[in-house]
Amino acid sequence: MIKLRQITKLYKPNTYALHCVDLHIKDKEFVSIIGQSGTGKTTLIRLLTAEEKPTKGQLIVGGWDITRIHRRDVPILRRQIGVIYQDFKLLNQKTIFENIAFALQVCGTSRSTINKVVPQVLRIVGLESKISRYPWQLSGGEQQRVGIARALIHHPKILLADEPTGNLDSINTREIIALLKKINELGTTVMLVTHDKDVVNLLKKRVVTLDQGRVVSDQKVGRYML
């Protein structure tokens, strides 16, 4: 599903955020990416969403070579990849419904489809009862679930999560991880970037460790060992 071949990302003048990274993530896999701060985890995500272009190497997503993706095609790519972030990136002046509907509106979805689909994804993340609240009226865990619902709205094949539990307490963290697992079981490839030792140990899934832009370990059933 995701293939990185000798990917190097150089931030000028001399920061190698990623250095000759080879990585192959299969369809429906759940992979955790761990590593210390500044080792290129976020950079990896940004390459996959085409916010950055690799300096060297080849990048293939779902059979599509996006190494030199044209600007025009970037939106098409992003509709096939859901992303969630540590800071949720919700719009505070919009309700939960509107936040998710916004993602469909700006992609030209009709109003009737929006009215049908939004409650559906909210049900998946268990927030259908809070549909008309505002983000600041929700707990951190609930806000992240809204983020996940929005990421799922286009039925992506891949879900990228950049430290989604970084701002959450342990109970909310467990809920979010459980949700990600459920989504993975429903057939979505999940790539989770995290700092959280407990999360990794709890998951018992594949773990890739980055250090200074290089892959230093890749375990089938990983444990956090930094």
């Binding site: 600007r71 939106p75 790519l77 992003r78 509709r79 916004f102 700006v106 709205i153 286009h154």
Partner: peptide
């Protein structure tokens, strides 16, 4: 957010 969810330029 628009960029994130794949709105066109």
């Amino acid at each position: 957010v628009m960029r994130l969810v794949g709105a066109t330029n």
